Simulated assay, not measured.
Amino acid sequence: MHIQHWLETVPAVAVYLMVGGVIGLESLGIPLPGEIVLVSATLMAASQDHINPYVLGACAVAGAIIGDSIGYLIGRKGGKPLLAWLGRKFPKHFGPHHVATAERSFTKWGMWAVFVGRFIALLRIFAGPLAGVLKMPYWKFLIANVLGGICWAGGTVALVYTVGKAAEKWMGQISYFGLAAAALFGVGSFVMMRIKAKKAAARSGERQEAESAPATVGE
């Protein structure tokens, strides 16, 4: 079966729910690839007539606004202990350095950090919870949240959909061979990254052992 025919069997409702859900969870404070999911779904809409880009954009906007609002309420109730807990659970996203960087942005820019943060991966995850932790007035947060969600989600869908329609003929040429090549490339890249990470960890362990070894005193 050609990939184009397979895509036609994917229910539009499933795509809408996936986009709204992933973006909502990311905005709530859970590290998920919301932007990747949104772009991929929009490209599908550009090649599949049964996926409405306006409905897709509305679901993305709703997910962003609702997720951010829930994250704000959680942050306001949880306070600093919440950030400490997130730092233990997701050290790569909520480590002390990331929290300090986000706090500086909020202190300097206020509600603009919520709006601009929608376009920046790190702040997109932090915006809702951190605004709540820092006790930003909800009306300010809501204005920035709504405007940021509309501009980011709506703008992304509009831009990617326009580009996707222009490249629709090319996209229709994609076959199983192309997908297989992309999958092999992705798996190969992942394996290489794992190997490099293990080598780096091994080198780091050797350095730590060397530093912790007792010095020998010569007579």
Rank of each mutant, 00 (worst) to 15 (best):
W139D: 12
I65E: 12
F126T: 06
V13Q: 06
V55N: 09
V146I: 11
S175A: 06
N52R: 05
G205Y: 10
I30V: 14
G132S: 04
G218Q: 15
P33G: 07
A183V: 15
L7H: 02
W170Y: 08
V133P: 01
E211V: 12
M192D: 14
G79F: 09
E168H: 02
Y54C: 05
A113W: 09
Y16K: 05
Y72E: 07
I51Y: 01
R203D: 15
M44Y: 08
H97I: 10
F185I: 09
K196V: 13
A182H: 01
V187D: 08
A64M: 00
M171H: 01
F177G: 11
I143H: 12
S47F: 00
W152L: 08
R124N: 10
P33T: 07
A144R: 13
I120C: 08
A127T: 12
E211M: 15
G20R: 00
W139M: 13
T216S: 12
E209M: 15
I143D: 14
L17E: 14
D68A: 05
W152E: 10
G110F: 00
G128L: 11
L83F: 06
V157Y: 06
G132C: 04
K108I: 14
M1T: 06
N145P: 11
W170L: 12
I195S: 12
R194Y: 11
M193D: 08
G172H: 03
G20E: 02
R207V: 12
V22L: 15
V217Q: 09
A60Y: 01
S69F: 03
G34P: 02
A200W: 03
L43K: 00
I70M: 12
V15L: 15
V15P: 02
A127Q: 03
T101W: 09
E168Y: 00
S105M: 09
I36K: 15
S27R: 04
I174A: 00
E168C: 00
F115S: 01
L28N: 05
C59L: 08
G154P: 03
N145W: 13
M171D: 00
G132W: 02
S47E: 00
F126C: 06
P129Y: 10
T42A: 14
A121K: 05
M192W: 14
R104T: 06
A131W: 02
A183H: 04
W112S: 07
K140E: 13
A45H: 04
Q208W: 14
P11K: 04
K198Y: 07
Y176W: 15
V61P: 02
L83D: 10
W85H: 11
R124D: 01
I23E: 10
A46M: 13
V133K: 01
L56M: 06
P214F: 15
G132I: 02
G71K: 02
K198S: 10
I174M: 00
L43P: 02
W6Q: 14
M44R: 08
A41W: 00
L147R: 05
A213F: 13
V160Y: 05
W170M: 14
S189Q: 08
C59E: 11
G154H: 07
K135L: 07
V39D: 01
A213Y: 13
